[in-house]
Amino acid sequence: MTVAGTGQDGTAGTVGTAGTVGTAGTGRASGPVVRRVLAGGAGPGAGDDGYPGADAGPLAGVYRLLVDGTLRTVDGAWLGESLLTVLRERLGVTSVKDGCEQGRCGSCSVLLDGKLVTACTVLAADAADSRVTTLAGLPDDGLAPAVQAAFLRHGAVQCGFCSPGFVVAVTDLLGRRPDADEHEVREALAGNICRCTGYGRIVAAVRAVQEDLAGQAGRPGEAAPGEEAS
């Protein structure tokens, strides 16, 4: 385990920037260059935007993250970087949206060892032996495709910024509680903010998935009282 330097070390930042593209390793090499959200990235030199950068503290050393089943190497990141920052700005996983960075908006929702969390409140270096699952890592043969289809069909996607976080949260909820009533659905999604839909269409999409699930299981009549889909 090495520490390459502190925030004053400009070389380390260069390594981090190059690593963003070079370590992608999921077929992106020939595709478009991974988008950097902040021009200065999270490395040193980004200090003039009001965020720590001029001295972002110690480096985290080299560590690996298991993201959607693929081991990704993170090199040159600052110790204080969140999983959100590392996913987006170093690994190019941009389905994880950067909204509030305070754990309040839910747009960066991911699964950490199968538990729904906000990536902005997870220290990336401390996730090194955990499984990180983003929208893209939700299994194709699971609930996620149905959830995504229902979101489109029911107009639950408008600007789309919150959608990846919502789909992860809804997939997590329905995996655990397929029969959740509307109150429970709303409570479970209370950590995800949507500024477009007013939530009605999102809840409708969730209820539609639940109905389909109940239908597939051949027990359409078993919904609890008051559970008719809106």
Binding site: Y51, P52, D55, G57, P58, L79, G80, E81, S82, T85, E101, Q102, G103, T118, C120, T121, V122, L123, A125, D126, D129, S130
Partner: peptide, 27 residues
Amino acid sequence: LLAGGTDLVPALRAGTRRPRAIVALRR
């Protein structure tokens, strides 16, 4: 000390905390 991270990690991002070392308790 880092536990769930819900307070410390946003504070690191905002620069209101700048520890030289972190002891993570997840394990």
